[in-house]
């Protein structure tokens, strides 16, 4: 479960480059406000992913503000595939326990 912020960020950044505030909003909207990553979570994860080569960043000036845009690298896409597999395994495992009559 600790990899959920990484999974969500890599998935969103696989589509297009985004900056921190945009990512917080996108996660909130995409999950119907079920998941809300705080600022205290998102920036450390973004910086960590960039540090290990999963993301790259660049500064862009938009509307008079300089923003740091992040995008997924090839390594980041590989990591995303790994995290997605892991997530599917966890989801299947949890579902099988929840749906099993013996455990209900």
């Amino acid at each position: 479960m600790s990899g959920v912020p990484e999974l969500l960020l890599l998935r969103l950044l696989d589509d297009r480059e985004m900056y921190g505030y945009e990512l917080v909003r996108a996660i909130r909207e995409a999950t119907g406000e079920a998941i809300s990553l705080g600022e205290g979570v998102i920036y450390p994860v973004l910086h960590g992913l960039e540090r290990n080569g999963s993301l790259r960043s660049r500064r862009r000036s938009v509307g008079g503000r300089t923003r740091v845009y992040y995008s997924a690298t090839k390594k980041g896409r590989q990591r995303l595939a790994g995290l997605q597999d892991e997530w599917h395994r966890i989801r299947t495992g949890v579902a099988s326990v929840l749906e099993s009559p013996g455990h209900a």
Partner: peptide, 14 residues
């Protein structure tokens, strides 16, 4: 990293 985190947080605040 510290400099950029502070700068990003400032932008986020704005």
């Amino acid at each position: 990293c510290a400099r950029r985190a502070a700068s990003e947080m400032r932008d986020h605040f704005d």
